[in-house]
Every structure is written in C-alpha cells, then in structure tokens.
Simulated assay, not measured.
Amino acid sequence: MLEHGGRLRAAAQRHGIALGDWLDLSTGIAPYGWSIPPLPLQAWARLPEPDDGLQAAARDYYAAPAVLPVAGSQAAIQALPRLRGRSRVGVVAPAYAEHAAAWRREGHQLLELGGAQVDDQLAQLDVLLLINPNNPSGQRFAPEQLLAWHARLAARGGWLVVDEAFIDCTPQFSLAGHSQLPGLIVLRSFGKFFGLAGIRLGFVLAEQRLLERLDELLGPWTVSGPTRALATLLLRDRPGQQAQRRRLLAGGERLGALLGAHGLPPSGGCALFHWCIEARAAQLHEFLARQGILTRLFTSPPSLRFGLPAGEAGWARLERALQAFKEHSA
C-alpha cells in the first residue's frame, strides 16, 4: 500500500499525542463543509437505484454530458488501466502516486514526465495522465493546451486522462464540458471540495460508450444509497457551493501568505493546499508533528504539503509552530 496523507491515528500512536489534540493539515480536503441534512429512510433500506437524481444533479454541477458515479475517484483510478491493452503511459510528475501504481500493476509501460516535456514525448505515448491542478505541486494546465494534447492522442486511438480532484474552486480550467470527446476522460472528486471524503464518492466524465464499459467492470451498487441521497442534495445547493468556493479561495491565499511570512514561500498550490520545496522538509515535518500538527511529507524533491486549518484556533496554532521552527533553526 502506498503512503497517503490523513494517517492521523498512526501519527497519534507514534508521537503519543491524543487523536483529538491534532491539527491535521496532511490532506487536501476542505476542513469545513455542510451540515448533514436528514436522509430519507429508503436511502438506507433499499438498494441504490441509478435513476434517483444523482447523475442528473452531477451533470448539471459539472456541466458534463455524461457522468458515472464511482466509490471515490480512486475506484476509477484502479479500474481504467484494465480497459486498455498494454499501452505506453506518460504521467506528469510529481503526481498522486496511485495513478502510476495502477497502470504499472496492469502491465503498462510507464514514463514519468515533467510538464515541459509533454510536447516532445507525446508521439511516443498511448495515454497521457495528469492532475489539474497538480497534486502536490499545484501546477495548472490551460484547457487549450490540454485539448491540443488530447487531439493528438485521440487521432491515433489514445487517451488523455485528467484528474481534476482539486479544480472545483477554479472550474474555468475544467475540461468537463468537453468530456464527451472520444479519448478524453475526466475524473472528479466529490469529497475534497465538499469536505466529505468519508462518503467515498467521485465521478468519471467521458463519452457514454466508455462509461458503460467502466460501469460493467465495476459492477452494480458501487455507491451507497445514503451517499447518493446526500450528494444529490449538495450538488444542487448552488448558494452553498458559492459560499464554500469563496471561503476556500480566501483560505488558500491566507495559507500561502502565512507560509511565506515564515520563510516557506510556496512552490505551488491551489485553494485547498500549498506545497513547499524545502531542504529541511523532514526536520520541519517532525518538528510540527511533535507539536501535534500533521503535514504531508514528500522526499523527491524534499517538500511539505500543507492543507487548510479548520478555524482560527488552528490558524493561530500553525503560526506559532512555524515561528518556533524559524527561531529553532536560526
């Protein structure tokens, strides 16, 4: 199993700090969200039904012609490599490691690329996979560039797979509205923007024929009835979405300024996280963990990803810890 952020229990055991005393900044999940409304009894008592309104609400929210709900975008990440024969797959790195692992597991040939290398290497690839904005670097790709890459791949039966897990605050960069194009596959995460990662929901946006193949591979009832009912309500809540978007964008700007003020100018990021390349990343990660603040450590390059604190107490706690590290390292 690959390492991921959010392993709070393991950190609590390692450092002897009670679970409730941690400030968890190790994920890119919104630290605040919606009040959970009561759900109808039939959502719990009946098997999920595909015509319950979820897909219509998702099509409206994403402005996409066709969508397939899945048990978190992770389910699609693992299944998509099984829909192609052996292929040459380029992954724009650094990237969420599960993508490369899933394609490698199914016997595909992997090539890690920097964003600037894609143009030169695209002719060698059958599949190009990237995250927009990238996780963890925050690098953003213009829709025009992505569509140009897609056209070159699709002309010879290739795929462009774009993971848009962190794009909800900047939907103008999304390819969702083009996802009916053959060979274009867009992955969207529900839990990160809505702050409800525990319900395990994501969507695949693509041409209907590919969605049908993926649906058949995954099997029936992959998304639970309560998840479907709750997501349908929130996908229709436009005022709530607008308020969440404003709050997250302001939080992202505040986090970037706070890190920069303490000698850690972000190397990249988005509304939900910032990424700092730092030679002392491992030392800072450990220093913060000893104070009950969990960040996401990367080793190549040495770097930390910081998510958003949930409230003013968390912001103040992070600021004190960063100042203490700055003084400790002077």
Rank of each mutant, 00 (worst) to 15 (best):
M1F: 09
M1Q: 10
R7D: 14
A11L: 15
Q13N: 10
I17E: 00
A18H: 11
G20L: 11
D24T: 04
P37G: 13
P40W: 03
P40K: 07
Q42M: 12
W44P: 04
L47M: 12
D52N: 13
G53M: 05
Q55W: 01
D60A: 13
P65W: 04
V67W: 00
G72W: 08
S73I: 06
G85D: 15
R86H: 12
V92C: 09
Y96H: 09
A102T: 08
R104L: 15
E106R: 11
G107M: 04
H108K: 04
H108N: 09
E112S: 11
L113S: 07
G115N: 04
A116M: 01
D120R: 14
L128K: 11
G138K: 00
Q139M: 06
F141R: 01
A142N: 06
P143Q: 06
L146S: 00
L153C: 09
L153S: 05
L153K: 09
R156V: 05
G157N: 11
V161Y: 08
V162L: 07
E164F: 10
F166T: 08
C169P: 06
T170G: 02
P182Y: 06
R188W: 05
K192T: 14
K192I: 13
F193I: 10
G195M: 09
L196R: 13
A197G: 05
V204K: 02
E207Y: 02
S224A: 15
G225T: 08
G225C: 08
R228A: 15
L233K: 13
L233H: 14
L234Q: 13
L235V: 13
R236Y: 05
R245L: 11
E253V: 10
R254P: 03
L259C: 03
G260N: 10
G263Q: 07
L272R: 12
F273W: 13
W275I: 01
I277T: 07
A279T: 13
Q283I: 01
H285Y: 14
E286C: 10
F287R: 03
A289E: 07
A289T: 00
Q291Y: 01
P301D: 08
S303Y: 00
L304E: 00
R305S: 15
A310H: 06
E319L: 02
L322E: 03
A324D: 15
A324S: 12
F325K: 01
H328E: 09
